[in-house]
Design a binder for these strands. Structure first.
Lengths: 337, 337
DNA sequence: GTTAGCACTTAGGCACGTCGAGTGCTAACA
DNA sequence: TGTTAGCACTCGACGTGCCTAAGTGCTAAC
């Protein structure tokens, strides 16, 4: 029994099953793929694959389907990432050009990716820590409530409402703004944390508490801010592949709505040397996604934000991986160095 | 055959069907509701109701279920909006207090509403046209690309990227900003359109084209801006009520993703005197929602934005309407006068 | 206008047999 | 040792026929 052929059999099973959604048997296998042996031999190979936990039979007289472990082996060792068709490349390029602001770019991107893959696509807001501060604005909403707005050179705009603990009055806030802006304009966001204490210290003691609150707010804005937000598209694709989620798509939708879950999942996914990482079925830390796979990759100036696709484990991995990789590349290019 | 009793029968059918999801027959009806007549009489009434198109029988020997028209009559004439339980009221109040910024409030609200009703909840961003301009910022992103940021006194922040057509340089942009800000600070957003031409006119002719572009951008920002955005929660509830969407929830998910569709639907819904408007099944202008109902109402300072709930036509209208109305009221109160 | 009674219709569940796909195993073969 | 042919066996899918329960419409009496 040859090892290489066994892998070839596994590949054939995965490909056929992904294509037909039906358990694939030994006879069909020898017919559709020109393996040079008889169905009986394939049966032996299949029995071995089953012993290794790579495939499984839904019931006695059915063909085999891949297990999570089988998909894993397929993705890691067997499959080659398929190149995109020229038409697809063109679609990517033309759809992502003529972009407006960041929101717009991400929105278009995620729609595109969901269309390319026929799955749910998600994209995390990019980190833009190299940006420097362009403008700071404090807007008094109520006696103690202040709206903080932070504008970075990259076009990132962040806002947040804050309780400063004391009533500074319109003038006090204006002075505070001038002070902060004067001290901080041009500061890189990544250095903000170091610069803030000095700014706070040079404020009159009576207002230092408020200044401290504002500084805290700015720090939060600059740092975590939108990076934990995400955009999503193509949830309707889940319903189409209804059959692939035996229980129901309910748990999956729940997971998608609990964005925290997805964000953790995305950031926990280690970076694969090939650029695209895959998390298959029960490998996912979240129960609702036990029958789903996530294909993701990093993108952006410093490759910290993630973009990816979520679908049933029965998924065309090579094509999906190619699409994710390609879209991530174009997106990185658009967002600039 | 008495009219009042016929309506009573319709109400009983709607209530039983909503409760049990099963077609309801004449016998079960007389047992569960103390109508003082026999099943044969009810049968006559039911036949009449069927003739009027208010109920229908899935097949010969099944009970009856309400039609869209039946639900409509039920909602308009029969049902009374149920008051919320004290526990629910408390939940609303406590969950909506301690709010951060607008995004946060809306996010919490929509989650709350979806939990209260076990349906999909949507909320449209409120119009804030009474706000005045607090700050304007132009950020040069690329030689001709400018990021516009508009901050209003209410805490609304809008941004947009624009191509100004000519290269103004850092200094040119800064001058332009000073000019715009000086002329427009304090202007109500609603008056912005009138003020802009003057501002553009007082710019040196060589830069007037750019100024015009910027003015156009500001106008767009102030006017349409976020008002056509919406937040949504509870899509997982759709999967739970899978059975209620015979075909599949696919079309519904598609409709939800095409936010344009929903926005139009919400704004097209006339304001009902009772405060809550209902659009039932095929009354919806969008095909994908032929088996769904929308319960919505206006909220906010000038009652222009909408909040609502979407679910299967087989929905507990009285309770849902009560929840939507209550949440809208609390939301309006929080957003202030 | 209401009621009782009855014939009629239909979905859904159950038992049954058949068919086909696919397997595992054994024995022969290279 | 690995490969192959053959065969008995298993099990789901499908079609058929049957029966029951639910519910209706209609008629005739009240």
């Amino acid at each position: 029994m040859s090892e290489p052929r066994k892998l070839e059999v596994l590949r054939a099973i995965v490909e056929d099953y992904v294509h037909s959604r039906e358990p694939v048997g030994s006879k069909a296998l020898v017919e559709r793929h020109h393996l040079g042996v008889s169905s009986a031999t394939i049966r032996n190979d299949m029995a071995a694959l089953e012993d290794e936990g790579l495939i499984t039979a839904p019931h006695t007289s059915a063909g085999r389907i891949p297990t999570d472990k089988g998909y894993r082996l397929f993705v890691d060792q067997i499959s080659a990432v398929k190149p995109l068709s020229p038409a697809e490349k063109k679609a990517i390029q033309s759809l992502l050009e003529g972009s407006d602001d960041l929101d717009d770019v991400l929105d278009r991107t995620v729609r595109l990716l969901s269309q390319l893959t026929n799955q749910v696509a998600v994209v995390q807001y990019p980190h833009l820590s190299r940006a420097t501060i362009r403008h700071i604005e404090f807007v008094l909403l109520a006696p103690r409530q202040v709206l903080l707005v932070l504008i970075a050179t990259t076009g990132k705009v962040e806002q947040r409402v804050l309780d400063v603990g004391q009533d500074l009055g319109e003038d006090g806030i204006a002075a505070m703004r001038t002070h902060f802006l004067g001290s901080l304009a041009g500061t890189p966001l990544s250095r903000l944390a170091q610069s803030l204490p000095g700014v706070v210290f040079s404020v009159a003691p009576g207002q230092r508490a408020a200044a401290q609150a504002l500084a805290q707010g700015l720090e939060t804005l600059a740092h975590s801010s939108r990076e934990d937000r995400m955009v999503m598209a193509g949830t309707a694709n889940l319903a189409r592949s209804n059959v692939d989620f035996p229980l129901s798509i309910g748990p999956v939708l729940e997971a998608l709505e609990e964005q925290v879950v997805l964000l953790r999942l995305l950031s926990d996914m280690a970076q694969d040397p090939r650029g695209v990482t895959v998390s298959i079925g029960r490998e996912n830390p979240y129960d609702g996604l036990a029958e789903a796979s996530v294909v993701a990759t990093a993108y952006g100036p410093d490759s910290t934000a993630k973009i990816g696709v979520l679908g049933p484990t029965r998924m065309d991995y090579p094509t999906t991986m190619a699409a994710v990789r390609a879209v991530a590349r174009y997106l990185s290019r658009i967002l600039g160095p």
